[in-house]
Amino acid sequence: MMNLKEPLTDDLTKWVAKEINQLSGSTLRLALLAIIKKHQSTGIYGYAIGEELFSFTEGELDGSKATFYAILRRLEKDQLVSSELQVSPTGPARKYYRLTPKGERAYNALWQNWIHYYGILQRLIENK
């Protein structure tokens, strides 16, 4: 989300875009872990993750374009999530995701760190 009063120069736009890209990437990872954690008991399949991503973030993180599957694959390779195929009533089999114990620990650690650093920045910026 870029909402700036003054137009940015090309170089600055690039720099900001790169930073935002990194930030949104990290946010997306945490958001995916959070959504999967919410459905830990039943597991959740890709499309449903995309829908939650869209609705809970009011469209800021869009799951409809399916790019988040790349991150899901990454998380699975890192053994943070596990998956199993289940028959779908409407089409091809769906892959249901759950957090692994390692994933739960990673999620908790990541979230705690987000809160921690957010707090630091808030104190720093608001008490200037």
Partner: peptide
């Protein structure tokens, strides 16, 4: 396969 399932669900 997973993308195919996604499109069908969509």
């Amino acid at each position: 396969k997973e993308l195919r399932a996604h499109i069908w669900d969509q």
